[in-house]
Design a protein around this nucleic acid. Structure first.
Length: 110
DNA sequence: ACGCTGACTATTA
DNA sequence: CTAATAGCCAGCG
């Protein structure tokens, strides 16, 4: 398979449990990109090109803010999806973000 | 081939 | 405490 940075990002995002969220930096660090969290978010841009759509709505910034909500079909889609999974979102921010934070480095126990 | 942009993060003022 | 700047990697024109 093409060991593309995108594929790795998609793989991790797909591993995110329902009702959990993670940050771009966490994924970036897990992939080894480390300081390039932008690439992760940017890779999400291709999430709509994948076969199973990538749950990009589970990926937020370090503050738990729905920074990329505007990149979905509608700016309300992201929040709607999160709420559908049991994640409280207020003012484009995830409540109890720390409790719902899912770190691949921790959960996957690299 | 060069330069710009981008769904971020961390540091400094 | 908040605001602004620098660093980063990869695709696209």
């Amino acid at each position: 398979m093409d060991s593309s940075f995108f594929d790795d990002v998609f793989a991790v995002v797909r591993l995110i449990p329902k009702g959990r969220v993670t940050s771009y930096g966490a994924i970036a660090r897990y992939l080894g990109t480390g300081k390039s969290a932008r690439l992760v978010g940017w890779a999400m841009n291709a999430s709509h090109s994948t076969d199973p759509t990538i749950p990009a709505h589970r990926v937020l910034n370090r503050n738990g803010m729905l920074t990329g909500k505007h990149h979905f079909g509608s700016p309300d889609t992201m929040q709607k999806l999160l709420e559908a999974e049991g994640v409280e979102v207020v003012d484009d921010q995830v409540q109890d973000f720390k409790a719902r934070y899912w770190d691949p480095n921790e959960e996957l126990q690299l």
